[in-house]
Amino acid sequence: MAKTNPEAPMIKQGKWKYTWHMMKTNKACYAMLLPFMSLFIIFTVVPVVMSLPMGFTNFNMIETPKFVGLSNFYTLFLNDDVFLIAVRNTLIFAIFTGPFSYILSFIIAWLINEMNAFLKTFFTFVFYAPSMTTSVYVTWQLILSGDSYGYLNAVLIDLGILNEPAQWLTDTNYILTVVIIVQLWMSMGAGFLAIRAGFQNIDKSMYEAGAIEGIKNRWQELFYITIPSMGPQLLFAAVIQISASFTVGVVGQNLVGLPSTDYAAHTIMNHATDYGNIRYEMGYASAICFVLFAAMLLANKGINWLLGKYLD
């Protein structure tokens, strides 16, 4: 029997005609996507596209934007000392909360997958819940309060470890570490759920076939069957974690304020928020956001290169 080429319709009709044909064929699916895609385009795609030309202007949201060329970028890299601090802090956050939270999400999802159905649901909710609520900051502020009524200080003083309350949220010796810990605790979000779904969707017969082929323990199953079978979920989770690590800022802003003491937890996102939402220097804020977008794009390209082999 002659083999059929699945790409023949596309080759015959042309790529765009074939795409339009498939869209009409699946018009019900696209109709359901329309509300989300409309909001996504209006509030995400359009602002991102506008940020590049706006980054070359001086715009205060009242007067007409004035073209200033590369002045914003020149100031950003050569004259803005706070931005350099923000870059350093962002890289520290990206290193600790990106790869570490990704590996942690995978390990926790793997352990949860070994439990019974009830415990799977319970622990998935327990680890995912912190990423859904903003009231978590109130809890952490109570734990890390800088007086003797803060739970952490009270315990450490009772144990004799501290003689006086530590200023966890204002002392530059603690601020960055505290924010990283809280960020890690809240990092089990969409990426974690994607990895959990990946474990659920693995065909169990693959493990039986692996045992016949000579796989002898769980570690070999993990590296030879589980991870290669979860390529799309691993890639999605990696992109989500890297993007979240570069745009971190909300946690620090809610815990230690904006700006934090001596800019100890100041990130690029905080810098953009400072100039955009507080000073209304939208041209300069757009330049900051464009630099951040470029860094995230390069990081995601690297992730696609590293994990792309598992998608084949």
Rank of each mutant, 00 (worst) to 15 (best):
I107D: 09
I107C: 12
I107N: 02
W110M: 11
L111E: 13
I112W: 04
N113E: 13
E114I: 09
M115H: 01
M115I: 00
A117K: 14
A117E: 15
L119E: 04
K120I: 09
K120L: 11
K120E: 09
T121G: 07
T121L: 14
T121C: 05
T121N: 14
T121W: 11
F122Y: 11
F123P: 00
F123L: 10
T124D: 12
T124R: 13
V126Q: 03
F127Y: 04
P130I: 06
M132W: 09
T133Y: 11
T133K: 08
T133D: 03
T134F: 14
S135Q: 15
V136P: 11
V136L: 04
V136F: 04
V136C: 02
V138K: 10
T139L: 15
T139C: 14
Q141S: 11
L144T: 05
L144S: 06
S145D: 15
S145H: 12
S145T: 11
G146H: 01
G146I: 05
D147G: 02
S148E: 15
S148L: 06
Y149W: 14
Y149L: 15
Y149H: 15
G150N: 12
Y151Q: 09
Y151P: 04
Y151V: 13
Y151K: 07
N153G: 05
N153T: 07
N153K: 07
I157C: 11
G160S: 01
G160Y: 04
G160V: 02
L162T: 06
L162Y: 15
N163I: 03
P165F: 09
A166L: 07
A166I: 08
Q167S: 12
Q167G: 02
Q167N: 13
Q167W: 04
W168S: 01
L169Q: 03
D171Q: 01
N173P: 10
N173S: 15
Y174G: 02
Y174A: 00
Y174M: 10
I175S: 01
I175A: 09
I175V: 14
I175K: 01
V179Y: 08
V179F: 06
V179E: 11
I180E: 03
I181Q: 06
I181V: 12
V182R: 07
Q183R: 12
Q183A: 13
W185G: 01
W185Y: 04
W185V: 02
W185L: 00
M186V: 04
M188C: 10
M188A: 01
G189W: 07
G189M: 09
G189Q: 10
A190N: 10
A190Q: 11
G191Y: 00
F192D: 03
F192R: 04
L193D: 04
L193G: 02
A194C: 12
R196H: 07
R196G: 09
G198Y: 07
G198T: 04
G198L: 05
F199A: 11
Q200M: 07
N201H: 00
N201E: 10
N201V: 00
N201A: 10
I202C: 03
D203G: 03
K204Q: 14
S205C: 06
S205V: 13
M206L: 14
M206A: 02
A209R: 08
A209D: 09
G210P: 08
G210A: 12
A211G: 13
I212Q: 03
E213N: 15
G214D: 06
G214N: 10
G214Q: 01
K216C: 07
N217T: 02
R218S: 11
Q220H: 08
Q220S: 05
E221C: 10
E221W: 08
E221A: 10
L222Q: 07
L222W: 01
F223E: 03
F223D: 00
